[in-house]
Write a protein that binds this DNA or RNA. Structure first.
Lengths: 231, 231
DNA sequence: CCCGGATGTGACAGAACGGTGACGGACCCT
DNA sequence: AGGGTCCGTCACCGTTCTGTCACATCCGGG
Protein backbone atom coordinates (compact mmCIF):
# COMPACT_ATOMS: atom_id res chain seq x y z
CA UNK A 1 0.00 0.00 0.00
CA UNK A 2 1.47 3.29 1.05
CA UNK A 3 4.98 3.92 2.26
CA UNK A 4 5.69 2.66 5.73
CA UNK A 5 4.79 5.23 8.31
CA UNK A 6 7.03 5.86 11.26
CA UNK A 7 6.14 7.98 14.23
CA UNK A 8 8.98 9.55 16.15
CA UNK A 9 8.35 10.49 19.77
CA UNK A 10 11.26 12.57 20.93
CA UNK A 11 11.36 15.88 22.73
CA UNK A 12 14.72 17.14 21.59
CA UNK A 13 14.08 18.83 18.32
CA UNK A 14 17.57 18.53 16.83
CA UNK A 15 17.61 14.81 17.28
CA UNK A 16 14.07 14.47 16.07
CA UNK A 17 14.78 16.47 12.96
CA UNK A 18 17.88 14.51 12.26
CA UNK A 19 16.22 11.17 12.55
CA UNK A 20 13.18 12.29 10.61
CA UNK A 21 15.35 13.59 7.85
CA UNK A 22 17.29 10.37 7.62
CA UNK A 23 14.21 8.22 7.59
CA UNK A 24 12.50 10.33 4.95
CA UNK A 25 15.56 9.97 2.85
CA UNK A 26 15.28 6.27 3.26
CA UNK A 27 11.78 6.39 1.87
CA UNK A 28 9.64 6.30 4.96
CA UNK A 29 6.73 8.52 5.73
CA UNK A 30 7.61 10.19 8.99
CA UNK A 31 5.53 12.00 11.53
CA UNK A 32 6.83 13.53 14.68
CA UNK A 33 5.65 14.05 18.21
CA UNK A 34 7.47 15.70 21.03
CA UNK A 35 5.52 14.28 23.90
CA UNK A 36 3.28 11.37 24.70
CA UNK A 37 0.18 13.40 24.36
CA UNK A 38 0.72 14.40 20.78
CA UNK A 39 2.00 10.93 20.10
CA UNK A 40 -1.38 9.54 21.07
CA UNK A 41 -3.09 12.08 18.89
CA UNK A 42 -1.02 11.04 15.90
CA UNK A 43 -1.70 7.43 16.63
CA UNK A 44 -5.38 7.85 16.00
CA UNK A 45 -5.23 8.84 12.41
CA UNK A 46 -1.70 8.02 11.36
CA UNK A 47 -1.69 4.39 12.38
CA UNK A 48 2.08 4.24 12.11
CA UNK A 49 3.71 1.00 11.12
CA UNK A 50 6.43 1.54 13.65
CA UNK A 51 7.26 3.90 16.46
CA UNK A 52 10.52 5.30 17.69
CA UNK A 53 10.17 6.35 21.30
CA UNK A 54 12.64 8.26 23.36
CA UNK A 55 13.21 6.87 26.79
CA UNK A 56 12.95 10.19 28.59
CA UNK A 57 10.05 12.39 27.70
CA UNK A 58 8.70 15.50 29.42
CA UNK A 59 5.17 14.45 30.25
CA UNK A 60 5.41 10.72 30.69
CA UNK A 61 8.33 8.47 30.38
CA UNK A 62 8.62 6.77 27.04
CA UNK A 63 8.56 3.51 28.87
CA UNK A 64 5.16 4.34 30.26
CA UNK A 65 3.90 5.17 26.81
CA UNK A 66 5.18 1.92 25.44
CA UNK A 67 3.62 -0.08 28.19
CA UNK A 68 0.26 1.49 27.76
CA UNK A 69 0.41 0.96 24.02
CA UNK A 70 1.17 -2.68 24.48
CA UNK A 71 -1.73 -3.03 26.87
CA UNK A 72 -4.18 -1.61 24.39
CA UNK A 73 -5.44 -4.13 21.92
CA UNK A 74 -5.72 -1.39 19.30
CA UNK A 75 -2.07 -0.55 19.39
CA UNK A 76 -0.32 -3.62 20.69
CA UNK A 77 0.71 -4.70 17.22
CA UNK A 78 2.66 -1.57 16.45
CA UNK A 79 6.36 -2.34 16.82
CA UNK A 80 8.22 0.02 19.11
CA UNK A 81 11.90 0.80 19.13
CA UNK A 82 13.14 2.72 22.12
CA UNK A 83 15.87 5.30 21.97
CA UNK A 84 18.02 5.46 25.05
CA UNK A 85 21.06 7.38 26.18
CA UNK A 86 24.11 5.35 27.02
CA UNK A 87 23.77 6.18 30.68
CA UNK A 88 20.41 4.52 30.70
CA UNK A 89 21.69 1.38 29.14
CA UNK A 90 21.44 -0.50 32.34
CA UNK A 91 17.72 -0.20 32.07
CA UNK A 92 17.80 -2.15 28.87
CA UNK A 93 16.05 -5.08 30.39
CA UNK A 94 13.36 -2.82 31.69
CA UNK A 95 12.85 -1.45 28.24
CA UNK A 96 12.27 -4.82 26.76
CA UNK A 97 10.09 -5.76 29.63
CA UNK A 98 8.01 -2.72 28.93
CA UNK A 99 7.15 -4.23 25.63
CA UNK A 100 9.56 -2.52 23.29
CA UNK A 101 10.52 -4.70 20.35
CA UNK A 102 14.04 -3.39 20.26
CA UNK A 103 16.09 -0.53 21.53
CA UNK A 104 18.88 1.62 20.17
CA UNK A 105 21.50 3.43 22.18
CA UNK A 106 22.28 7.06 21.52
CA UNK A 107 24.37 8.10 19.79
CA UNK A 108 23.54 5.76 16.99
CA UNK A 109 24.42 5.69 13.33
CA UNK A 110 21.63 6.08 10.83
CA UNK A 111 22.63 2.81 9.32
CA UNK A 112 22.19 1.02 12.55
CA UNK A 113 18.83 2.57 13.13
CA UNK A 114 17.66 1.63 9.64
CA UNK A 115 18.83 -1.90 10.13
CA UNK A 116 16.91 -2.22 13.37
CA UNK A 117 13.83 -0.74 11.84
CA UNK A 118 13.89 -3.12 8.94
CA UNK A 119 14.55 -6.05 11.19
CA UNK A 120 11.69 -5.21 13.50
CA UNK A 121 9.32 -4.59 10.67
CA UNK A 122 10.21 -7.81 8.99
CA UNK A 123 9.56 -9.61 12.20
CA UNK A 124 6.30 -7.77 12.71
CA UNK A 125 4.73 -8.45 9.35
CA UNK A 126 4.80 -12.19 8.76
CA UNK A 127 5.56 -13.14 5.16
CA UNK A 128 5.64 -9.52 4.11
CA UNK A 129 2.45 -7.59 3.69
CA UNK A 130 2.65 -7.56 -0.11
CA UNK A 131 2.43 -3.84 -0.61
CA UNK A 132 2.87 -3.94 -4.32
CA UNK A 133 1.81 -1.20 -6.60
CA UNK A 134 1.60 -1.99 -10.26
CA UNK A 135 1.14 0.33 -13.15
CA UNK A 136 1.76 -0.35 -16.81
CA UNK A 137 4.29 -3.03 -16.14
CA UNK A 138 6.01 -0.97 -13.50
CA UNK A 139 6.09 -2.66 -10.14
CA UNK A 140 6.86 -1.01 -6.85
CA UNK A 141 7.17 -3.31 -3.90
CA UNK A 142 6.99 -1.15 -0.86
CA UNK A 143 7.87 -3.80 1.64
CA UNK A 144 11.20 -4.48 0.01
CA UNK A 145 11.60 -0.97 -1.35
CA UNK A 146 12.18 -2.31 -4.82
CA UNK A 147 11.07 -1.15 -8.19
CA UNK A 148 11.07 -3.32 -11.26
CA UNK A 149 9.96 -3.13 -14.84
CA UNK A 150 9.32 -6.46 -16.44
CA UNK A 151 11.95 -8.56 -14.72
CA UNK A 152 14.62 -5.92 -14.59
CA UNK A 153 15.36 -3.86 -11.54
CA UNK A 154 14.94 -0.12 -11.69
CA UNK A 155 17.57 1.74 -9.72
CA UNK A 156 16.20 4.74 -7.90
CA UNK A 157 17.58 7.07 -5.31
CA UNK A 158 15.56 7.57 -2.14
CA UNK A 159 13.88 10.75 -3.32
CA UNK A 160 13.03 9.29 -6.70
CA UNK A 161 11.60 6.30 -4.93
CA UNK A 162 9.33 8.44 -2.79
CA UNK A 163 8.38 10.53 -5.77
CA UNK A 164 7.42 7.49 -7.78
CA UNK A 165 5.61 6.02 -4.83
CA UNK A 166 3.60 9.17 -4.42
CA UNK A 167 2.78 9.27 -8.09
CA UNK A 168 1.72 5.66 -8.18
CA UNK A 169 -0.63 6.21 -5.28
CA UNK A 170 -2.01 9.37 -6.88
CA UNK A 171 -2.23 8.70 -10.59
CA UNK A 172 -4.12 10.76 -13.13
CA UNK A 173 -3.79 13.91 -11.18
CA UNK A 174 -1.78 17.07 -11.57
CA UNK A 175 0.44 18.25 -8.74
CA UNK A 176 2.18 21.57 -8.63
CA UNK A 177 5.79 21.76 -7.63
CA UNK A 178 4.80 23.14 -4.26
CA UNK A 179 2.42 20.30 -3.60
CA UNK A 180 5.06 17.76 -4.47
CA UNK A 181 7.57 19.41 -2.17
CA UNK A 182 4.96 19.30 0.54
CA UNK A 183 3.99 15.74 0.12
CA UNK A 184 7.14 14.03 -1.07
CA UNK A 185 9.85 16.06 0.59
CA UNK A 186 7.83 16.79 3.71
CA UNK A 187 6.12 19.93 4.84
CA UNK A 188 8.96 21.62 6.63
CA UNK A 189 11.77 21.40 4.16
CA UNK A 190 12.56 24.45 2.17
CA UNK A 191 14.05 23.87 -1.22
CA UNK A 192 13.73 25.59 -4.54
CA UNK A 193 10.75 24.53 -6.56
CA UNK A 194 13.00 23.88 -9.52
CA UNK A 195 14.54 21.08 -7.52
CA UNK A 196 11.42 19.12 -8.27
CA UNK A 197 12.19 19.38 -11.97
CA UNK A 198 15.57 17.87 -11.41
CA UNK A 199 14.23 14.90 -9.53
CA UNK A 200 11.54 14.46 -12.15
CA UNK A 201 14.37 14.34 -14.63
CA UNK A 202 16.20 11.73 -12.58
CA UNK A 203 13.11 9.64 -12.24
CA UNK A 204 12.46 9.84 -15.95
CA UNK A 205 15.99 8.88 -16.73
CA UNK A 206 15.69 5.82 -14.55
CA UNK A 207 12.49 4.81 -16.31
CA UNK A 208 13.80 5.61 -19.76
CA UNK A 209 15.41 2.22 -20.48
CA UNK A 210 11.96 0.70 -20.20
CA UNK A 211 10.20 3.37 -22.20
CA UNK A 212 8.21 4.21 -19.11
CA UNK A 213 9.35 7.76 -18.76
CA UNK A 214 6.26 8.67 -20.74
CA UNK A 215 4.26 8.00 -17.56
CA UNK A 216 5.70 11.09 -15.95
CA UNK A 217 4.06 13.91 -17.80
CA UNK A 218 4.56 17.63 -17.72
CA UNK A 219 1.54 19.88 -17.53
CA UNK A 220 2.92 23.18 -18.58
CA UNK A 221 2.09 25.96 -16.21
CA UNK A 222 0.72 23.60 -13.57
CA UNK A 223 3.04 20.80 -12.60
CA UNK A 224 3.39 17.10 -13.25
CA UNK A 225 1.10 14.14 -13.67
CA UNK A 226 1.53 10.39 -13.55
CA UNK A 227 -0.64 8.73 -16.13
CA UNK A 228 -0.77 5.99 -18.69
CA UNK A 229 -2.70 8.05 -21.17
CA UNK A 230 -0.60 10.20 -23.37
CA UNK A 231 -1.26 13.87 -23.51
CA UNK B 1 -27.15 25.67 -1.11
CA UNK B 2 -26.81 25.09 2.62
CA UNK B 3 -24.82 27.38 4.83
CA UNK B 4 -21.07 26.89 4.74
CA UNK B 5 -19.72 25.08 7.76
CA UNK B 6 -16.66 26.40 9.51
CA UNK B 7 -14.73 24.61 12.22
CA UNK B 8 -12.74 26.71 14.65
CA UNK B 9 -9.82 25.08 16.41
CA UNK B 10 -8.67 27.43 19.12
CA UNK B 11 -7.90 26.82 22.77
CA UNK B 12 -8.56 30.28 24.16
CA UNK B 13 -12.26 30.40 24.83
CA UNK B 14 -12.74 34.20 24.65
CA UNK B 15 -11.24 34.39 21.21
CA UNK B 16 -13.09 31.35 20.06
CA UNK B 17 -16.40 32.74 21.22
CA UNK B 18 -15.77 36.05 19.61
CA UNK B 19 -14.89 34.60 16.26
CA UNK B 20 -17.72 32.12 16.37
CA UNK B 21 -20.16 34.87 17.17
CA UNK B 22 -18.97 36.98 14.28
CA UNK B 23 -19.08 34.15 11.83
CA UNK B 24 -22.54 33.04 12.85
CA UNK B 25 -23.72 36.58 12.33
CA UNK B 26 -22.23 36.43 8.88
CA UNK B 27 -24.37 33.43 8.13
CA UNK B 28 -21.95 30.57 8.64
CA UNK B 29 -22.59 27.40 10.52
CA UNK B 30 -19.87 27.23 13.13
CA UNK B 31 -18.56 24.41 15.24
CA UNK B 32 -15.75 24.68 17.73
CA UNK B 33 -12.91 22.56 18.98
CA UNK B 34 -10.35 23.45 21.60
CA UNK B 35 -7.68 20.98 20.64
CA UNK B 36 -6.59 18.90 17.71
CA UNK B 37 -8.10 15.78 19.08
CA UNK B 38 -11.64 17.03 19.25
CA UNK B 39 -11.02 18.79 15.97
CA UNK B 40 -10.41 15.44 14.36
CA UNK B 41 -13.53 14.08 15.94
CA UNK B 42 -15.58 16.92 14.53
CA UNK B 43 -14.02 16.45 11.16
CA UNK B 44 -15.50 13.04 10.76
CA UNK B 45 -19.14 13.94 11.10
CA UNK B 46 -19.13 17.64 10.34
CA UNK B 47 -17.16 17.76 7.11
CA UNK B 48 -16.56 21.49 7.45
CA UNK B 49 -16.10 23.58 4.34
CA UNK B 50 -13.28 25.50 5.95
CA UNK B 51 -11.19 25.39 9.08
CA UNK B 52 -9.71 28.11 11.24
CA UNK B 53 -6.76 26.72 13.14
CA UNK B 54 -4.82 28.42 15.86
CA UNK B 55 -1.11 28.20 15.48
CA UNK B 56 -0.42 27.24 19.08
CA UNK B 57 -2.54 24.51 20.55
CA UNK B 58 -2.10 22.52 23.71
CA UNK B 59 -1.83 18.97 22.43
CA UNK B 60 -0.38 19.38 18.98
CA UNK B 61 0.66 22.46 17.15
CA UNK B 62 -1.94 23.72 14.75
CA UNK B 63 0.67 23.55 12.07
CA UNK B 64 1.03 19.85 12.63
CA UNK B 65 -2.70 19.41 12.42
CA UNK B 66 -2.82 21.31 9.20
CA UNK B 67 -0.03 19.30 7.72
CA UNK B 68 -1.60 16.03 8.59
CA UNK B 69 -4.90 17.16 7.16
CA UNK B 70 -3.26 18.14 3.93
CA UNK B 71 -1.55 14.82 3.71
CA UNK B 72 -4.77 12.88 3.98
CA UNK B 73 -6.66 12.49 0.77
CA UNK B 74 -9.92 12.60 2.68
CA UNK B 75 -9.29 16.00 4.13
CA UNK B 76 -6.76 17.64 1.87
CA UNK B 77 -9.40 19.63 0.08
CA UNK B 78 -10.65 21.41 3.17
CA UNK B 79 -9.23 24.92 3.10
CA UNK B 80 -7.37 25.94 6.23
CA UNK B 81 -6.71 29.40 7.54
CA UNK B 82 -4.22 29.64 10.36
CA UNK B 83 -4.48 32.13 13.18
CA UNK B 84 -1.14 33.35 14.43
CA UNK B 85 0.04 35.84 17.00
CA UNK B 86 2.13 38.69 15.72
CA UNK B 87 5.22 37.30 17.37
CA UNK B 88 4.86 34.18 15.31
CA UNK B 89 4.51 36.09 12.10
CA UNK B 90 7.97 35.18 11.03
CA UNK B 91 6.72 31.64 10.64
CA UNK B 92 4.36 32.73 7.94
CA UNK B 93 6.22 30.87 5.31
CA UNK B 94 6.21 27.77 7.42
CA UNK B 95 2.49 28.01 7.85
CA UNK B 96 1.79 28.27 4.19
CA UNK B 97 4.25 25.56 3.41
CA UNK B 98 2.59 23.36 5.93
CA UNK B 99 -0.40 23.43 3.68
CA UNK B 100 -2.49 26.24 5.11
CA UNK B 101 -4.33 28.13 2.43
CA UNK B 102 -3.98 31.44 4.16
CA UNK B 103 -3.19 32.86 7.55
CA UNK B 104 -4.38 35.77 9.64
CA UNK B 105 -2.37 37.59 12.26
CA UNK B 106 -3.85 38.28 15.67
CA UNK B 107 -5.27 40.65 16.49
CA UNK B 108 -7.40 40.76 13.39
CA UNK B 109 -10.48 42.66 12.42
CA UNK B 110 -13.63 40.67 11.73
CA UNK B 111 -13.77 42.32 8.36
CA UNK B 112 -10.35 41.04 7.44
CA UNK B 113 -11.13 37.55 8.61
CA UNK B 114 -14.33 37.42 6.61
CA UNK B 115 -12.55 38.68 3.53
CA UNK B 116 -9.93 35.97 3.84
CA UNK B 117 -12.53 33.31 4.38
CA UNK B 118 -14.44 34.30 1.33
CA UNK B 119 -11.32 34.53 -0.76
CA UNK B 120 -10.11 31.12 0.28
CA UNK B 121 -13.46 29.49 -0.26
CA UNK B 122 -13.81 30.98 -3.67
CA UNK B 123 -10.38 29.72 -4.54
CA UNK B 124 -11.04 26.27 -3.20
CA UNK B 125 -14.42 25.44 -4.63
CA UNK B 126 -15.60 27.06 -7.80
CA UNK B 127 -19.34 27.08 -7.07
CA UNK B 128 -18.88 23.97 -4.94
CA UNK B 129 -18.93 21.87 -8.03
CA UNK B 130 -17.67 18.61 -9.35
CA UNK B 131 -14.12 18.08 -10.31
CA UNK B 132 -15.10 17.05 -13.79
CA UNK B 133 -17.18 19.40 -15.86
CA UNK B 134 -19.14 18.20 -18.84
CA UNK B 135 -20.87 20.20 -21.50
CA UNK B 136 -22.13 19.02 -24.88
CA UNK B 137 -19.65 16.19 -25.10
CA UNK B 138 -16.83 18.40 -23.92
CA UNK B 139 -15.18 17.14 -20.76
CA UNK B 140 -12.85 19.08 -18.52
CA UNK B 141 -11.30 17.21 -15.63
CA UNK B 142 -9.68 19.73 -13.40
CA UNK B 143 -7.83 17.31 -11.17
CA UNK B 144 -5.98 15.73 -14.05
CA UNK B 145 -6.03 18.95 -16.00
CA UNK B 146 -7.35 17.24 -19.10
CA UNK B 147 -9.83 18.34 -21.70
CA UNK B 148 -11.39 15.86 -24.04
CA UNK B 149 -14.07 15.75 -26.67
CA UNK B 150 -15.46 12.29 -27.24
CA UNK B 151 -12.37 10.22 -26.68
CA UNK B 152 -9.91 12.61 -28.21
CA UNK B 153 -7.75 14.92 -26.18
CA UNK B 154 -8.10 18.63 -26.71
CA UNK B 155 -4.79 20.47 -26.53
CA UNK B 156 -5.00 23.81 -24.80
CA UNK B 157 -2.48 26.32 -23.58
CA UNK B 158 -2.66 27.41 -19.95
CA UNK B 159 -4.68 30.54 -20.62
CA UNK B 160 -7.10 28.78 -22.93
CA UNK B 161 -7.54 26.12 -20.30
CA UNK B 162 -8.40 28.68 -17.66
CA UNK B 163 -10.69 30.47 -20.05
CA UNK B 164 -12.57 27.30 -20.91
CA UNK B 165 -12.73 26.32 -17.27
CA UNK B 166 -14.26 29.65 -16.43
CA UNK B 167 -16.77 29.40 -19.23
CA UNK B 168 -17.79 25.90 -18.29
CA UNK B 169 -18.43 26.96 -14.72
CA UNK B 170 -20.39 29.97 -15.90
CA UNK B 171 -22.34 28.93 -18.96
CA UNK B 172 -25.21 30.78 -20.59
CA UNK B 173 -23.95 34.12 -19.47
CA UNK B 174 -22.35 37.03 -21.22
CA UNK B 175 -19.04 38.39 -19.98
CA UNK B 176 -17.43 41.57 -21.15
CA UNK B 177 -13.75 41.61 -22.00
CA UNK B 178 -13.00 43.48 -18.82
CA UNK B 179 -14.78 40.90 -16.71
CA UNK B 180 -12.94 38.08 -18.39
CA UNK B 181 -9.61 39.77 -17.81
CA UNK B 182 -10.57 40.16 -14.19
CA UNK B 183 -11.66 36.63 -13.59
CA UNK B 184 -9.49 34.58 -15.90
CA UNK B 185 -6.31 36.60 -16.01
CA UNK B 186 -6.59 37.86 -12.44
CA UNK B 187 -7.65 41.16 -10.99
CA UNK B 188 -4.34 42.98 -10.99
CA UNK B 189 -2.99 42.26 -14.42
CA UNK B 190 -3.45 44.84 -17.02
CA UNK B 191 -3.58 43.85 -20.56
CA UNK B 192 -5.25 45.19 -23.65
CA UNK B 193 -8.85 44.12 -23.89
CA UNK B 194 -8.31 42.96 -27.43
CA UNK B 195 -6.03 40.29 -26.04
CA UNK B 196 -9.17 38.51 -24.94
CA UNK B 197 -10.25 38.25 -28.54
CA UNK B 198 -7.04 36.55 -29.44
CA UNK B 199 -7.38 33.92 -26.76
CA UNK B 200 -11.00 33.39 -27.68
CA UNK B 201 -9.72 32.76 -31.15
CA UNK B 202 -7.17 30.26 -29.87
CA UNK B 203 -9.74 28.47 -27.80
CA UNK B 204 -12.10 28.27 -30.76
CA UNK B 205 -9.39 26.92 -32.96
CA UNK B 206 -8.65 24.16 -30.46
CA UNK B 207 -12.31 23.21 -30.34
CA UNK B 208 -12.79 23.46 -34.09
CA UNK B 209 -11.78 19.88 -34.96
CA UNK B 210 -14.71 18.71 -32.87
CA UNK B 211 -17.16 21.26 -34.18
CA UNK B 212 -17.41 22.64 -30.68
CA UNK B 213 -16.17 26.11 -31.44
CA UNK B 214 -19.82 27.05 -31.81
CA UNK B 215 -20.06 26.92 -28.00
CA UNK B 216 -17.98 30.06 -27.73
CA UNK B 217 -20.26 32.77 -28.97
CA UNK B 218 -19.74 36.43 -29.65
CA UNK B 219 -22.26 38.91 -28.34
CA UNK B 220 -21.58 41.93 -30.41
CA UNK B 221 -21.06 45.02 -28.34
CA UNK B 222 -21.02 43.10 -25.04
CA UNK B 223 -18.54 40.29 -24.96
CA UNK B 224 -18.63 36.50 -25.13
CA UNK B 225 -20.87 33.72 -23.96
CA UNK B 226 -20.49 29.99 -23.54
CA UNK B 227 -23.67 28.25 -24.53
CA UNK B 228 -25.09 25.27 -26.35
CA UNK B 229 -27.95 27.21 -27.91
CA UNK B 230 -27.09 28.96 -31.09
CA UNK B 231 -27.53 32.67 -31.54
C1' DC C 1 -25.49 50.70 -50.68
C1' DC C 2 -22.01 52.89 -47.94
C1' DC C 3 -19.80 53.92 -43.54
C1' DG C 4 -17.81 53.28 -39.09
C1' DG C 5 -17.13 50.71 -35.28
C1' DA C 6 -16.61 46.03 -33.66
C1' DT C 7 -14.60 41.56 -34.20
C1' DG C 8 -11.71 37.82 -36.60
C1' DT C 9 -7.21 36.46 -37.77
C1' DG C 10 -2.25 35.73 -38.96
C1' DA C 11 2.28 37.11 -37.71
C1' DC C 12 5.89 38.23 -34.51
C1' DA C 13 9.12 39.35 -30.81
C1' DG C 14 9.81 39.04 -26.07
C1' DA C 15 8.82 36.56 -21.88
C1' DA C 16 7.97 32.53 -19.43
C1' DC C 17 8.63 27.84 -18.82
C1' DG C 18 10.65 23.47 -18.49
C1' DG C 19 14.71 20.18 -19.85
C1' DT C 20 19.21 19.24 -18.93
C1' DG C 21 24.16 18.81 -17.75
C1' DA C 22 27.35 20.18 -14.40
C1' DC C 23 29.00 21.31 -9.87
C1' DG C 24 29.98 21.49 -4.98
C1' DG C 25 28.74 19.85 -0.64
C1' DA C 26 27.01 16.48 2.71
C1' DC C 27 26.99 12.06 4.12
C1' DC C 28 28.24 7.26 4.40
C1' DC C 29 31.08 3.16 3.65
C1' DT C 30 35.58 0.99 3.47
C1' DA D 1 41.59 9.72 4.04
C1' DG D 2 39.46 8.17 -0.35
C1' DG D 3 35.66 6.87 -3.18
C1' DG D 4 30.85 6.73 -3.94
C1' DT D 5 26.10 8.21 -3.68
C1' DC D 6 22.74 11.47 -3.37
C1' DC D 7 21.06 16.07 -3.10
C1' DG D 8 20.04 20.97 -4.09
C1' DT D 9 21.26 24.72 -6.99
C1' DC D 10 22.65 26.96 -11.05
C1' DA D 11 23.30 28.40 -15.84
C1' DC D 12 22.19 27.69 -20.35
C1' DC D 13 19.14 26.42 -24.14
C1' DG D 14 15.27 25.23 -26.95
C1' DT D 15 10.34 25.37 -26.89
C1' DT D 16 5.95 27.19 -25.96
C1' DC D 17 3.05 30.79 -24.67
C1' DT D 18 1.59 35.53 -24.58
C1' DG D 19 0.38 40.17 -25.66
C1' DT D 20 0.25 43.34 -29.33
C1' DC D 21 -0.10 44.92 -33.84
C1' DA D 22 -1.82 45.37 -38.56
C1' DC D 23 -4.95 44.14 -41.64
C1' DA D 24 -9.14 41.66 -43.15
C1' DT D 25 -13.89 40.96 -42.37
C1' DC D 26 -18.30 41.52 -40.53
C1' DC D 27 -22.42 43.91 -38.96
C1' DG D 28 -26.03 47.26 -38.28
C1' DG D 29 -27.68 51.89 -39.15
C1' DG D 30 -28.60 55.62 -42.14
Amino acid sequence: MTAKRILIVEDEKPIRDLVAFGLRRAGYEVSEAEDCRSARASLVDQRPDLMLVDWMLPDMSGLELTRSLKRDKETEDIPVIMLTARAEEQDKVGGLEGGADDYVTKPFSPRELLARIQAVMRRASPAGGEDVLEFEGLRLDDSSHRVSAGDAEVALGPTEYRLLHFFMTHPERVFGRGQLLDRVWGGNTYVEERTVDVHIRRLRRALEPFALDRLVQTVRGSGYRFSAREG
